[in-house]
Design a protein around this nucleic acid. Structure first.
Lengths: 154, 154
DNA sequence: TCATACTCTAACGTTAAGGTAAAGGCGCCG
DNA sequence: CGGCGCCTTTACCTTAACGTTAGAGTATGA
């Protein structure tokens, strides 16, 4: 069960995500998120699911370097599967629901492939960095020795 | 030894890097790269080191998501260490050279830390993706079963 | 020597992802 | 009910990283 107890307004949510309210409204503009509902005055009200959603968005954006437009495609596919469980859009036939799951599976698989590829390249990068660090260490030792011998001459 | 035999002009280099000539000139503008020399007519001439340099730049940009300005800082530190070996700027004292190596070591170390952190987060992401894939697989099997039983009713 | 393909500089255009400011409502405390 | 802090929309501004076009020069094979 999702904790529906802690509702919040845009400022608090922004703080928890370490982003600005402007960014949240912008994400809403481009269809990435939506408030649970609004107060009479028009104030946006969010639940904790949105916090998780934002974090998910930031992972896709920062870790995979995707644009918000690309991110949108992915989470929309995920959303559709989530909606299969709820009564919302229960109207689909089972064949249609199967198609939705298949499509989302494809999205996740390609995402997984991308993550794996990145893991490989990052690991390669780590290797070269470690090698470079070792070379620098040796160079430093060498230079230290030279400095020492020069100090001896004083 | 670096292969100095294969010199090329901007178009060929662009093709090998899968970028445009515009991008290469832009990188030059902001001080990321420089041609080996120019022909009389002003045409840029590059060596193969530049190809490696561009690939390095793209790794930092794409894999770590750094801006070109951040990339510049890193490769400048690396350049300085490389210059220690050549007669260029041989004028430094050993203390100064030691300082350069130390600074570059710091740069590489923080780079390594960042790579490691990203590796960890990416690995976590892979885990959740695999879990999600499994759930989708189960859901798909379930739906398939429902479709089968409905076909039986026809 | 001429045509063709490549290159040069300079300058304006574009897009994503927000930043910032203005002018005005809302909610609640005292 | 007055003030204070948060929220609303609208609208213009900014920056990075190039794209694109124009107008002119260069290199080279036929």
């Amino acid at each position: 069960m999702v904790d529906t107890t802690h509702e919040m307004q845009i400022g608090e949510l922004a703080q928890m995500c370490h982003i600005t309210t402007r960014t949240l409204r912008y994400y809403e503009d481009i269809g990435l998120i939506e408030p649970l509902r609004r107060l009479e005055g028009g104030f946006r009200v969010y639940g904790p699911e949105t916090l998780a959603r934002i974090q998910h968005i930031q992972e896709l954006k920062d870790l995979l370097g995707w644009s918000l437009e690309e991110v949108k495609g992915v989470i929309q596919a995920e959303d559709e599967v989530d909606n299969l469980r709820s009564q919302y859009r229960q109207s689909r036939t089972d064949q249609e629901r199967l198609a939705v799951v298949k499509q989302a599976t494809g999205v996740i698989e390609s995402q997984l492939a991308m993550v794996s590829e990145r893991l490989g390249r990052l690991d390669g990068m780590r290797g070269t960095l470690q090698a470079k660090l070792q070379r620098y260490g040796e160079l430093e030792a060498e230079l230290r020795e030279q400095v020492r011998s020069q100090e001896g001459k004083l």
